[in-house]
């Protein structure tokens, strides 16, 4: 029983609330992650991300609502068999080697020892596995935590800010690894500070703001629904800049370009109009709203909607 991989398990959170004194860490949050899906949970510090993980692990009980893992009560031993967790801050004993750390967690999860080596290879710690983890860099320690989490291919991966210590390159490797696991049916729930860290790799994005779920959907939908303006940057001959600017508005840049800001719907019409006007167009650059802007749109605090200050 212990050695089985619990594949095809899902995470279900239904109207979960949790308060710490006057702080509403989670307020009626409903979320689900299906097998093979990667859900990125975003939010500022204090938005309630870690609290949600702790509820899913059964460390704390919600004040209201329920959290289920593969249809089982969160925190039960059966539920924990399906889960692997990587906490936000973890410091492994410095005198243990990377391999010893992963082998320990393999044993705790009832997974064969031999899988420890594979997990270490996958996160790129194969070479360093026999060194004490006290000698690891921050990024390597983060990857060791990840190796511990993926050992034995768990059915559900809960990762609390897994990319925070990683440089952009390791971050890409990390998302590749997650994509591989998700491709084999693992449900992944990971938290992050911002959208830009995701490298557009999550199949779905949920955003928490002060304990409330303010967005949940595929990244494309969030971008569309935010209705943030797109910028069109037109490069032309210096002599033409003036007329272009008079016709389309916007602002001039460097005396050779004009930048027009428009709603997503107007974009095609404006492009067509620019295309048809006389005069040489050297280049047209389309700048969609950045992920950071989209994230800020959802996570920014609107005065009046606040539950607490």
């Amino acid at each position: 029983m212990e050695g089985q991989h619990a594949m095809n398990a899902s995470v279900d959170i239904r109207s979960v609330s949790k308060s710490f004194g006057a702080v509403h860490a989670l307020d009626q949050v409903s979320l689900s992650v299906a097998p093979g899906e990667t859900l990125a949970l975003l939010g500022h510090n204090g938005a309630g991300k870690t609290t949600l993980f702790r509820i899913l692990l059964g460390f704390i009980a919600p004040d209201g609502g329920e959290a289920q893992i593969g249809g089982l009560e969160a925190g039960s031993r059966q539920a924990r068999r399906m889960i692997s967790y990587l906490p936000e801050n973890v410091a492994f004993p410095k005198t243990l080697t990377g391999r010893e750390v992963v082998e320990l967690y393999a044993a705790l999860k009832g997974v064969a020892k031999s899988e420890a080596g594979q997990a270490l290879e996958k996160v790129g710690l194969g070479e360093a596995a026999s060194r004490c983890c006290g000698t690891y860099s921050k990024g390597m320690r983060q990857r060791l935590g990840l190796a511990q989490a993926i050992v034995g291919s768990p059915g559900i991966l809960l990762l609390d800010e897994p990319t925070s210590g990683l440089d952009p390159l390791s971050r890409q490797d990390f998302y590749q690894l997650i994509a591989d696991l998700a491709g084999r049916g693992t449900a992944v729930l990971l938290s992050s500070h911002g959208l830009s860290e995701l490298e557009a790799r999550a199949s779905r994005v949920a955003i928490l703001r002060k304990g409330k779920l303010v967005a949940d959907g595929p990244l494309g939908n969030l971008q569309r629904d935010a209705r943030l303006p797109t910028r069109i940057r037109v490069k032309t001959a210096p002599a033409d800049v003036e007329t272009l600017h008079r016709e389309f508005g916007g602002r001039r840049i460097n005396g050779a370009s004009v930048e027009v800001t428009c709603d997503p719907d107007e974009k095609m019409a404006i492009l067509a109009a620019i295309h048809q006007r006389p005069g040489a167009i050297a280049d047209i650059e389309l700048i969609p709203p950045s992920l950071d802007e989209v994230y800020r749109h959802y996570s920014a605090c609107e005065p009046g909607k606040e539950v607490r200050s």
Binding site: L57, S84, P87, E88, V90, Y105, L108, G110
Partner: peptide, 14 residues
Amino acid sequence: DRGTLQLVLATPIP
């Protein structure tokens, strides 16, 4: 303190 208890208690060990 070190955060490892969360990790251990997230596994099925009683």
